[in-house]
Design a protein around this nucleic acid. Structure first.
Lengths: 107, 107
DNA sequence: CAGCATCCAGAACGATACTG
DNA sequence: CAGTATCGTTCTGGATGCTG
């Protein structure tokens, strides 16, 4: 892969994650929450399909953006950001600022 | 829509654009080029489907991120970023930096 | 509570060929 | 050069119901 004519690929890792339908929104919740649970996300998103949520969470865990923590009885578990995930937050916030600036009442 | 429980929607505008498969890469070329042509993009991307490229360009134009400029004879035309589009570049660069930091030799 | 399984509608994208 | 037309495939994600 020649970097001269094809300097892409660099963006790939970020777009792979942020390009999925729910992921940016999901990640957004970590800005204020730090630790989030499955059912919380279902709730916050207004009823995301558990299948979708599960797959997003799995992908995020596999790419090392979040970490799953089994906590307590009754299948209670929590998700929190890793350092890698934390570094994503400023980008999310910039995206949000941009959206807000150019599409304030975005339908 | 209640902003308390559903503070989303803000990210939407950005993710709608950056979520498409080629768009971030396409935009990336504007960092160095300023003015880009259809065939250049086809070339730079390594042969993106013209149908796809066309639809991306149309979408970008409709959201006011790029501007199409008919220039010269022979269907020659060019695309350049608007102010709105320019404001997207830092985000792209951050995404690139992030990708580079956490997935250097990203396959 | 935290998922997984199955089924399915529709969007996204590539290949290829053709036009103003 | 800058697209459009057509076709087909693949991938995504929603609905719904079940399980550890």
């Amino acid at each position: 892969m020649d970097t001269a004519t094809k300097p892409i690929g660099c963006l790939q890792a970020a777009t792979d994650i942020l390009g999925d339908k729910w992921t940016p929104h999901l990640l957004r919740y970590f800005i204020n929450e730090e630790i989030v649970r499955f059912c919380q996300l279902q709730d916050l998103t207004g009823g995301i399909n558990p299948r979708t949520l599960s797959s997003r969470l799995t992908a995020l865990e596999e790419t090392g953006i979040i970490k799953k923590i089994i906590s307590g009885p009754g299948s209670r578990c929590e998700y929190k950001l890793t350092a890698k995930g934390h570094d994503l937050l400023p980008i999310l916030q910039d995206m949000e600022a941009w959206s807000d600036k150019y599409a304030p009442s975005n339908a």
